[in-house]
């Protein structure tokens, strides 16, 4: 197993790449990064066999750890290994840059296992998290393979290490939705402060730039999203709600944002010309 630690620590020092929704129409990387990202993520096809090996290795490791817990209890397990395994593999950055919702789910189940073991929960409950984690790893591998295919066809852009700010209102909303997915991922990773900061920054740097135009279209929608950004979501994070609850809030916000996107696209079509 190749060591991932050095490049990973550098990579994790920046926010990394924004997720790619794996539908062809939304295949764009818009990286909110100010540091270096390993170029491996721009050559996915070359690394697919490595990723497959890593997923098999992860499955074995997590299964083994939970089996040890089933047999010998909490004392026999070092739960920090659950984090280390995942941070050790190159596949980590592949899925983090390609499909953030699954990346979030992976962290959710890793911490589900960790918390279950540390609390001495029923082994069946811990095993259930491990099974779902394994399923998610394989789903994620499928997503990375699909992204590799599109990357190979030249359909998707390279992940860039400089900030390319979205310019139109629909682009900004797409970016907001990706950032919210990242919030769930960081919360699942138990980086609560990072998640809270991302919500605030997303509001100030993105939503604030479009809400003036949106309020002309639907004032109540802006009011609802204002509350989501400034009250509902940050409070859910600060109050330690479950990852599923935070994800549910984000999903609801994304539906409202989809509505906002439609309204703004329509408004844009009706906007008069400059000259």
């Amino acid at each position: 197993m190749s060591s991932y630690t050095a490049s990973k620590s550098l990579y994790k020092s920046v926010f990394g790449a924004i997720a790619l929704g794996l539908s062809v129409t939304s295949l764009s990387f818009n990286v909110q990064a100010n540091g270096q990202i390993t170029d491996q993520v721009n050559h996915l096809k070359d690394h697919l066999s490595e990723y497959s090996e890593e997923v098999s290795w992860l499955e074995e490791k997590y299964d083994g750890l939970v089996t040890r817990y089933e047999a010998k209890g909490t004392e026999a397990v070092d739960t920090q290994e659950l984090i280390n395994y995942w941070e050790e593999v190159n596949f980590h950055s592949a899925i983090e840059t390609q499909y953030i919702p699954l990346y979030a789910t992976i962290w959710q189940h890793i911490y589900g296992i960790k918390t279950g073991i540390e609390n001495g929960d029923d082994a069946k409950k811990v095993r259930q998290h491990q099974r779902e984690l394994t399923q998610t790893f394989w789903q994620a591998l499928g997503a990375v393979k699909l992204a590799a295919h599109y990357q190979d066809k030249g359909v998707i852009d390279k992940i860039k290490t400089t900030d390319k700010a979205p310019t139109s209102a629909p682009e900004i909303i797409t970016d907001i939705e990706k950032r919210l997915d990242k919030v769930v991922a960081k919360y699942a990773e138990q980086l609560t402060e990072v998640a809270t900061t991302m919500v605030h920054d997303t509001y100030m740097e993105r939503f604030e730039g479009i809400e003036g135009a949106l309020i002309e279209q639907d004032a109540s929608l802006v009011e609802a999203l204002e509350k989501d950004f400034n009250v509902t979501l940050p409070q859910a994070i600060e109050n330690g709600k479950s990852v599923d609850e935070v994800r549910s809030i984000v999903d609801t916000m994304k539906k409202k944002l989809d509505n906002a996107q439609s309204l703004l696209e329509k408004a844009e079509q009706n906007r008069k010309d400059v000259f």
Partner: peptide
């Protein structure tokens, strides 16, 4: 500098087209 949504962009596009 980041400004008023996409409206500055519309202005710049119009100047380019002209």
């Amino acid at each position: 500098g980041r400004g008023e949504g996409g409206l500055y962009e519309k202005v710049l596009d119009a100047i380019r087209q002209r």
